[in-house]
Nucleic acid binder design. Structure first.
Lengths: 231, 231, 231, 231
DNA sequence: CATGAATGAGGTTTCATTCAT
DNA sequence: GATGAATGAAACCTCATTCAT
């Protein structure tokens, strides 16, 4: 993650970075993201975060209050980032099938590019989301997303290509789950199935499978009732 | 849990504590499962495990060697249990659609009944499966399961109800992911979507959704190629 | 406490914060008094003092040099205040018995109104008066007080109502001790004797007891020798 | 404080003291008493206690739970000791005047021999007795003491030597206060009155003063009403 | 006069593990 | 097989103080 992207570009500051609160904050947040990703909340070490960030340990507390508060800040940041990138897809301007395809592809590749997103969620769930529960920010982040997805489904149904009565939240959980479980649990899956799940071929196959899975479900002409429920 | 159930039953031990190695081992394992479930590997406390098990802390080391080895023992035990119960389904004796339905239902309800299975996998993946990698036991546990699932898919395809070219491992990962993500990440999902995912209605709806999803995919008469791939 | 009461009253400072050195100093001193009272020297927090005073932490050091110097400044201030109020009693203008009665009453009520006086002395004694020892100011504050009390005792003896040979310092220590121990140690006393020492009744009773105690001693017609010393 | 009074006296233990839980506990308690005495609760250092006691720091937590709990243990121990020694006076077997004389003398000398008793009370009051409040033990320790003192007063009044209506708790607080304030606040008193309060002469004089003070009050033939209250 | 940012030493507490019996 | 006592490293966090502006 591009640390210090265009730092020190001006002649005013003589090659030092202290006394730049914004940068200090950012550096801590990045270091913390990495640390929590690699070791979880319990395994993360505050000292290591400070070292990685190149700041005094005391600063973590100055800026974030506590390890737990820092963890929440990290969670909020990663949610903000994925939802932000998602918005750039502009799914409302695509035709429904293409929108779903794009969303699946984006989700898949985002998880691939950002393994920390998976592990951080992982950790937070281990702790029963006790950090996120305190955050109204993340909640407000998600209602527009749900609305947008609901709109896509509505248009697809109106066009006669999608099945009826699909809950956007339910669909998103399925879509995310199909990507998440493969990528996030790849270590145990590799161990028990004795396969390399990260080989380029395997990755391409999985994406195709997931896309087919989701669209196969949405476009199945047989009503859900006839197949999914017992006759 | 019933500490010292039928202790001192024999005349061999004159008025001393149980000294029932098997029971001691089992109690430690149960206590460890609970502890790792609730706090993760990093957050689990050896003292607490010993207390819960009602044995001296030293015994953990006597029986299991170390905290990490104990964690592996727990993992092997939970895998053994789920695969064992799975075998009792005798999917090879059911017709393909019913077999899949049964497998989905079993997986769903097993995860519901055994939340520790989810969190333990969770933890192990956080640690990149470094424990399971050392275990050949779990690997041997899974190949018959894959074979059996492949057989069901083969029979379904032969009967003309299932689509072609479905990899059993891929399907299993999808099926598990659909259940796992909803249940295992329910805390963060509840926080961000502001929903109660564990309400009886919600659970029933989700199971139906998952079943429909899997069967919708498997039985979609449109070839995967025509829809999932761009024209 | 009324932060920035009549701030920005002068045209000198163009739209900036108060910059009223005297007020800043006073506010720090008040905040410090409260903090040292509540938490002792060791437990007091420099940050909290600055926050309470509504000034930047750096100002404490600017005005007082260090935490210890600030503590000494607080001590000197409280001594100055009690001795100052004491002077307004004008004991030299009262008849001896009434003077003692007034002194007892004043001491009692002053301690009641100013619990911080007790706790600050408390703290300073815990540290073996290492701050006060450096202060010649407090010493000079007390010699007139001793002289005045000695004068009252002399007048009482001359009038035949007070016993002979009473050391004013000794008497003051006794009088103060009778008030101090009850009020200053009221928490432990309440805990061990299971009583509410601060109930209005209890307070009135105690003051009466102390007054009786002091005057009972001073006015006892039996020579001290006959009773207090073994025959 | 006689550390390791008659340790290692037996031939069984080859000159080591670990693995003697009782002694370890005692050593920690003694070291803690000294540390809290010298530095107060806030200023006391857990490391220093462990070093002084010659035990691993971890043992403090093993035996006492926390610094605060250790402080309470110290408080309970010192109360137990003073009340225990007090009982050996057997005041109920002495004539009333002699009993009071003995109690004053004992209190005075106990405070002199055990300055830590004064400073510990001091510290506990600074913290508003939040430790002692949790201790029912100390409460039970004091009711027999109050009863005994009440008995002495009753006998003195019956014999016609003590005045009427003296509350034993009130008297004890006065007696203790007269000793405590002089000895416990000697550092500030020395600083402000510029006297050496610990010189042998000064100490003897003070004890005589206190004894005279207490007995002067108890035996004053003038009714309290006539002198202590305004005519 | 005044400020927000920064520091490093050291605070209490907890950890997995091992020793001596 | 089983135990209570002991260990040292390291965890999170806080402290009084100072720097750069």
């Amino acid at each position: 993650m591009d640390r210090r992207a265009e730092a020190d570009q001006g002649p005013a500051v003589p090659g030092r970075f202290p006394r730049d609160p914004d940068q200090t904050r950012t550096r801590i947040l990045q270091a913390a993201t990495l640390e929590f990703h690699r070791f979880g909340l319990g395994g993360a070490r505050v000292d290591r975060i400070a070292d990685t960030a190149g700041v005094n340990k005391r600063m973590l507390y100055y800026y974030f209050g506590s390890k737990d508060d820092l963890f929440l800040a990290v969670l909020e940041a990663v949610y903000e980032q994925i939802r932000g990138e998602e918005r750039t897809l502009e799914l409302d301007r695509l035709d429904p099938v293409e929108a779903i395809r794009q969303l699946v592809s984006f989700t898949w590749h985002y998880y691939l590019r950002h393994p920390e997103f998976l592990t951080l969620l992982n950790s937070e769930n281990l702790h029963e989301a006790r950090h996120l529960k305190r955050s109204s920010h993340v909640r407000s982040l998600h209602s527009p997303f749900v609305q947008m997805l609901g709109d896509v489904l509505g248009r697809g149904r109106a066009a006669g290509v999608f099945r009826d009565g699909v809950d956007p939240v339910q669909l998103y959980i399925s879509l995310a789950g199909l990507c998440y479980f493969y990528l996030g649990n790849r270590h145990t899956l590799a161990a028990i199935f004795d396969r390399d799940l990260m080989a380029p071929d395997a990755l391409a196959t999985r994406l195709e499978h997931v896309t087919g899975f989701v669209l196969g479900y949405l476009t199945n002409p047989l009503s859900a009732g006839r197949v999914a429920t017992r006759p």
